[in-house]
Design a protein around this nucleic acid. Structure first.
Lengths: 224, 224
DNA sequence: AATGCTAAGATGTCAGACCAATTCAACGGT
DNA sequence: ACCGTTGAATTGGTCTGACATCTTAGCATT
């Protein structure tokens, strides 16, 4: 992701963390430069971004001021599972994940850049390498899917998945631990990658569904 | 007047004079630098200005491209500036909603009971009745969709939608306020209901996509 | 014809310098 | 003690040059 985007995010984070109100002054450009470890021009372009949106105002010789609080819209999900057992809970989260992940895959197939492709393929190779070495590759599998989420260029997808994963952490871990999960799902990971590389949204959806079908099998085969 | 303001005006003038259409490429930063007799950083900050407004797009290694014609009105009116940010936020939330809502519709088509059908049809009729009476039917439209979510018998879907709706409240309201939204989307609401009643997941997905396509149109047609 | 490589051109970023406006504390006169 | 002045320090505004990284068109090879 571009450094400029990181800086706008960091700026929004700072405003939020520092509880800045409308009218408050932001740190000087040279301070932000040192804090965020970026050049001054990058800082200034981020400031121009918010200035164009009417969120901040610059006064020469004085400083940069907040006109209204910057809201970095993040989703907080106090979700609660009403399922009676782990198996049903997993199946419910899987349904949601299927909706999000298919759509993220389709959007990624449409909007992915060459750089995204490189990043995804890297994770894919890493995943296969670790699996050959250790037998399991849960974290690497997750990294692969997160790379696809990033390729959609819609941060909401990833925020949602990570939030769900965090909430249902112990549930998500389970399926990936199964020995043969990787073996059965790996071919689809490769074809999913190819679909995204080929900018074929429908194919991306099909392959995502196949991967999640393997996950669903494992969940349904779980000991009661 | 700041030089930066002169540059944004000059850029807008250039786009207008050159009759640039959406998708056209702007001159390179170094060319603009020479044409307008200003430094490159000034050019870049002007570009960031329009980029934040969603008017232009920069592609590293390729160039700067026009996404939609620059109108001077949008440049000097801080009120409309917020709308472009809003537009992008809406499109991003719509992508997530599409993933969730399609899946919820498909699951609902599989798992719905006869009582669910009755509840959904009730909301559908209520929606059409209120629309005939008041012209708009935002809350009733929402109630219809929530009934479908409930028919999926997976509380996570509804929790997710409501959480998103709460977080992006001001965004969600907008599209539903448009006068002809209801008229254009109502036929698909009826066909969506029929698909769920017929236990046809793929059809449910298709009809959901049609409804959300109407929403997407409205968002994209929003004032800059 | 298809493929791979190279070089040119574009944006992204950083560093340093100077200009212009503002701020504020130190100073001096009343 | 009060108040206006002054000047140094701070801050945003701009310019320049350099290098990195990505894209793309054109060339060369197969």
């Amino acid at each position: 992701m571009d450094r400029a985007r990181q800086v706008t995010d960091a700026l929004a984070d700072y405003v939020e963390d520092a509880r800045l109100q409308a009218g408050d002054r932001l740190p000087a450009e040279r301070e932000l430069m040192a804090d965020l470890r970026v050049g001054r021009s990058t800082i200034r372009e981020a400031i121009r971004h918010f200035q164009a949106l009417g969120v901040i105002e610059t006064r020469k010789g004085s400083g940069t001021y907040l006109l209204k609080p910057i809201s970095k819209a993040t989703i907080h999900m106090p979700l609660s599972l009403h399922a009676t057992d782990l198996r049903n809970a997993l199946l419910q989260t899987l349904e949601v994940r299927r909706g999000i992940e298919c759509e993220a895959g389709m959007v990624a197939a449409k909007k992915r850049t060459q750089q995204d492709i490189i990043a995804i393929e890297e994770k894919l190779n890493e995943m296969e390498r670790v699996h050959l070495e250790k037998g399991t590759s849960g974290p690497e599998d997750l990294a692969f899917h997160l790379a696809i989420y990033d390729a959609s260029h819609n941060p909401l997808f990833r925020q949602l998945l990570e939030q769900m994963r965090e909430t249902f952490w112990q549930f998500w871990q389970h399926p990936f631990e199964r020995q043969d999960f990787a073996r059965r799902s790996f071919p689809f990971h490769r074809t999913l990658f190819n679909a995204i590389a080929a900018r074929d949204p429908e194919a991306a959806r099909e392959e995502t569904l196949k991967i999640l079908a393997v996950v669903e099998e494992d969940i349904k085969d779980m000991s009661q």
